[in-house]
Write a protein that binds this DNA or RNA. Structure first.
Lengths: 193, 193
DNA sequence: ATTTATCAGACGACTGGTCATATATTGTAA
DNA sequence: TTACAATATATGACCAGTCGTCTGATAAAT
């Protein structure tokens, strides 16, 4: 990885931390460069605009999450439904690492979908990816007989992903893990009965 | 209602339409007064700050929604679970009326929970209210035997409310009703089997 | 005449973005 | 290896415009 790319990534990582808590419009270019301790002029060497930065940030977060999710979902030593539970549990901790609960992707979705079509499309693509991963594991669970629910896996996956995003949002408002507990208790009931 | 209160409400209604699509930080005082065709100087006659406006806006939206929800949930001519389905369907249309999909409360939650404690607490309270309404109807369904699921009603209500908020969010990213359809198909399965 | 409500415009701070200049880095030729 | 030009990167002062908020003059009501 070139020196340039390293610095770009450093700027991204620092900026994501700020933007994940203060939101897109709540974060200025100045905030981002301050967080990375980089002069303001340098920002536009790496990103052509603030929107461009946000999209790159979304891509970086997505990449991290997808890698982490794959590690959990492909562990064939664990039963599919157990893997799905782990997938969600790990997804939550991934969000908390950006300090102050909340999913960066979900936040950007709510704040920017109506303002920036480019951001909306990127968010949509990332949500589709995640949903597809859930669908795949559900198919696997169906094959081994552990998934009792007879609804189409795609439908169930979409429902579960959305429910989970809603759970993350509620955690943010409540500043509590209770919503997560409710989700994890209902999840197996929905799938195995 | 006094002339003053009428004008205040008018300013609120106009401002909510803008803030619901552009977000809190994406909406300026100028945007709000322009939407209501009121001079900028007047804004601070009615609201002591932008945050104060947002909280009043949240209260107005909540009041509308709660009234609409009560109408649906208290209609004893309809079976409880059917009422719950209607409750969610109507909740979606309530959000779309603020143009461009998405729940004003959910949007404010994601954008502002980490920035404004006052807004976060208001959002939390509103979510609790809604969840309580769901819990009540679930209890009713349990009494008449139509709710098969044996999980505590409070838990189920929390899960359902969060799933529904997630569904609204996904609709915003996807610009589609598919997430709603998935929700409405899974809902009865979760409750009655 | 006195109080109260309204509002135009000004305030300083800050916005996303640009640009001329300064500094590194690289490629080439001797 | 050195010398030097050519190119790329780094930078902070600066732009025009906007931000949320406030004040002082005016209008309306009493």
């Amino acid at each position: 990885m070139s020196k340039r790319e390293l610095k770009k990534d450093f700027l991204l990582e620092a900026g994501i931390k700020v933007m994940a808590t203060r939101g897109y419009n709540g974060t200025s270019i100045q905030d981002i460069v301050d967080a990375a301790d980089v002069p303001k002029g340098s920002f536009y060497t790496y990103f052509k605009s603030k929107e461009d930065f946000a999209i790159a940030a979304l891509e970086m977060v997505a990449e991290e999450r997808i890698q982490a999710s794959k590690r959990v979902l492909n562990d064939r030593a664990v039963a599919p439904i157990q893997r799905l539970v782990k997938f969600f549990e790990q997804g939550v901790s991934g969000c908390e690492s950006n300090l102050n609960g909340g999913c960066f992707i979900g936040n950007m979705c709510q704040e920017m979908s109506d303002s920036s079509e480019a951001i909306r499309l990127k968010v949509r693509q990332m949500m589709r990816n995640k949903t597809q991963m859930i669908e795949d594991i559900l198919e696997e669970a169906r094959l081994d007989g552990s998934l009792k629910n007879t609804l189409p896996a795609g439908l169930l996956a979409e429902f579960l992903f959305n429910a989970w995003e809603g759970t993350l949002m509620r955690m943010k408002a409540a500043k509590s893990r209770d919503p997560l507990n409710a989700f994890l208790l209902v999840l197996p009931v929905l799938l195995t009965s």
